[in-house]
Amino acid sequence: MSTSRNRLLDHRFIINTGKGGVGKTTLSVAMAMAMARAGRRVLLFQFNVHDRVGPIFGKPPVGPEIVELAPRLFAVNTTPPDAMREYVLMTLRVRLLYRAVFENRTVARFLRMIPGLPELVMLGKAYYHEGESADGRPRFDAVILDAPATGHGMFLLQIPRVISDAVADGPMVGEAHRMAELLRDRQRTRINLITLTEEMPVNETLEYQRRLREELDIEPGGIIANSVYPTPFSATEVRQLRDLRDTLRIRTNNNHDSGERDLSSMLEAALFRDARCAMQKGYLDRLEQESGAPVIRIHHRFEPTLDAAALEFIATELSSGGSTS
């Protein structure tokens, strides 16, 4: 299964993180599709979201119970209380005690106030499924996390805060250390920073990468630049188009022929496309230079809504390790 050509989908535990609106969910679903297609049993793990994934597969929104959306493609949408309950039950092994203590409203509220605890138990649940076995073999071949965009996408950074800011000793510290270790384990875990090739997402991605390195000693597996325009026009063609546009401009200044206006807007659209491509290229270069990490490109899709068919295209792109142009 593992090839050096595409390390993107080789890991057992994949965390997709990035700021809101960059397409984390889209890419997470496409990754899951690509893996399931390749015969692996994969769990798509979401954090307390208004689920959009179930409907893509013609199913109801995904909730806290694991469901199979397509052959070998499973999904779950966990919440802090759900994850807390599972974690505590696993540790306590006494359901009655759990009910008596943790289902108390006041206690539940108190637990929400412990810094980093919700993140910790949700990540813990995800790692549990990664190591879970059924019938003597792993239940899933891979778990993909669609990380929450809250806290400016700095979800993972909440974990060590448990240690540094709030808790000096006790089992939570042990758990937090264990999680930090797992996040650093590059054999099992791959963290992808997902971004758009635009000023602010790029700034934030580079900042996040720096903080992951400095605060968590984590080296992200790579950066995925989503929604990159394919460049249909070569540099020579762009020059030709620009020349043609310029001569047309001189002409249309003298007469207002609608045919020429239409011709002009065809040319302008091409140059518009080229300008956006050039801008994106600039940000891709910057990402590569400043991150020192591999940057994988996923092409922009011109479909108005991303249905299962469009996601299949992205899945194929991901299977081949993204575009490299």
């Binding site: 306590l92 203590v101 206690v107 108190f110 000096a168 006790g170 089992p171």
Partner: peptide
């Protein structure tokens, strides 16, 4: 006592007392 003992199995006692003080 049950609540306290159970919770501190997860949080440790120190967190409990300090958070209480803060609140």
């Amino acid at each position: 006592q049950l609540v306290f003992r159970t919770l501190t199995r997860f949080t440790g006692t120190e967190l409990f007392t300090e958070l209480g003080e803060f609140l």
